[in-house]
Structure formats: structure tokens, C-alpha cells
Simulated assay, not measured.
Amino acid sequence: MVKIIGAGFGRTGTASLKAALEHLGYGPCYHMFEVIAQPERAQDWELAMDGRVSDWQQVLGGFESTVDWPGCAFYRELMDFYPDAKVLLTVRDPERWYDSTYGTIYQFVQDPPGDDDFSAKLRPTIERMIWNGTFDGRFEDRAHAIDVFERHNAEVQRVVPADRLLVYRVGEGWQRLCDFLDVPVPQEEFPHVNDSASIRDLAAQVSADGEVPSPFTSA
């Protein structure tokens, strides 16, 4: 049963947050990497975009939290289905967010399609949901993309009841996150995963191994 819903866009520290939540006991955490590792999961999100998912446990069964796309695109539906779940909105400076997104995940899907499951199953879903859906096919228009990012963040804060929401920057570390979740602060340092230099290597490793490497040896 999902207990935490991540409403923040990708490239707002979501991979680090995934590792942190799993370390705190809210794992496994559903991240875009789950779909990279199992491209057949893209079908779930095609159905969701068509409004054909009524039982989210069929999509997220076995997971205790979600972050990143595709889940953040359906935070309202997830809030309704999991009324006791808390919502985490990860944010960062909009200009830096755009530069990071443009230089990493946007370029990642601009590569020529290959003869693989990513290209056949996942890439069309990502393009439909994110680049053509969320950003109206105009992600290269910097001002438009940043406006979409800021409007999304504002809408989350308008829609989600204050007692269910934490607006959070991963650079803040453990304290506010743990206070919000009412769990003890770990002794380990807060994880730092998936910086701009490593995204391609990490995605390739996820595709090969089927899981995201954890920075915690005990995880």
C-alpha cells in the first residue's frame, strides 16, 4: 500500500529521495527507473493516460512510495486512491532544474531510436506523457517549460491539504523529511544519487540489472 506520493518532477532530486525513502522503510519506491528496468510497465501508464486505471494497486501493488515520473503526473488520482498517503513535492531552482533536465533526460530520449525494449515500449510512453503531454511538445522553449514547472508546483501546493504535504529540497537532508514522516533520523549521510554526469551509466545499469544501486550497504 502506497504511503508516500511524490509529486515533484524528475530532476528535482528524486533518485536521491527514492534511496532515502527506501532506507527509512518506505520501500520499494516506484521511480521511472522501475519502468526502465521493466519496459512492459509502460502499458500501465498508457492505460492511466487514457483514464482506464481505477485500481491503482494493479499498477503500484507491492510499492510503499512513489517519486518522479510517471507517478508525479497522477498525484491527484493517487491522493484520492490512497487517502492516508502523504505527499512530497520536491523542488529546486527553476532555471537550474531546466538546465539539468535539458542536459540529461531530455537529451537521453532525443537519441535515435534503437532496436530494444526501451525504444519499442517505453520511449513512446515517455514522449506522450512528458514531452508532448506535460510540456505540450515545447520543452525546448525554455520559458514555457519553466512556466509549466512552476505552475505544477503551485498547483500541488494549492490542491494538497497542508497536513498531507511537505515541500522539500533534497539538499535539506534528513531532518525535515523525518519530522514530516515521524521517523528517527538515520546516522548515515543523506544519499546523493544520479547526478548529471552519471545518468546514462545509471540508466544502463538499471536496464541490465533490473534495480537501482543503493548508496546504503545495508539496503
Rank of each mutant, 00 (worst) to 15 (best):
A120R: 15
D179N: 13
P39S: 12
P161N: 07
R158C: 09
R92V: 06
D117N: 12
Y82C: 14
V59G: 09
H23R: 13
G133K: 02
R176L: 11
F216C: 13
Y26D: 01
P124R: 00
E46N: 06
L24I: 00
V109P: 00
P112V: 01
D111M: 04
A7V: 07
P113K: 09
F33L: 08
A154L: 05
R169F: 06
Y75E: 01
M49S: 01
H152R: 04
S196Y: 04
D111S: 05
G51A: 03
L21T: 02
P83T: 11
Y30C: 03
R200N: 14
D55R: 14
Q58S: 10
Y75I: 02
G13V: 01
I126Q: 05
R123F: 09
V67N: 05
Q175S: 03
A15T: 09
A85F: 04
W131R: 10
V193M: 10
P70L: 10
G173V: 14
Q107T: 12
P191T: 09
F74T: 02
I5E: 10
A20H: 05
D209K: 12
D201F: 05
Y75T: 09
T125P: 00
W56V: 01
R164C: 02
G114F: 07
M1S: 03
V59P: 08
T12Y: 07
R96N: 15
G114W: 07
Q57E: 15
G10M: 13
A197N: 09
Q110D: 08
G171A: 13
I199R: 11
D84I: 04
W56S: 11
S214E: 08
K3L: 12
I4F: 06
Q43V: 07
G137T: 02
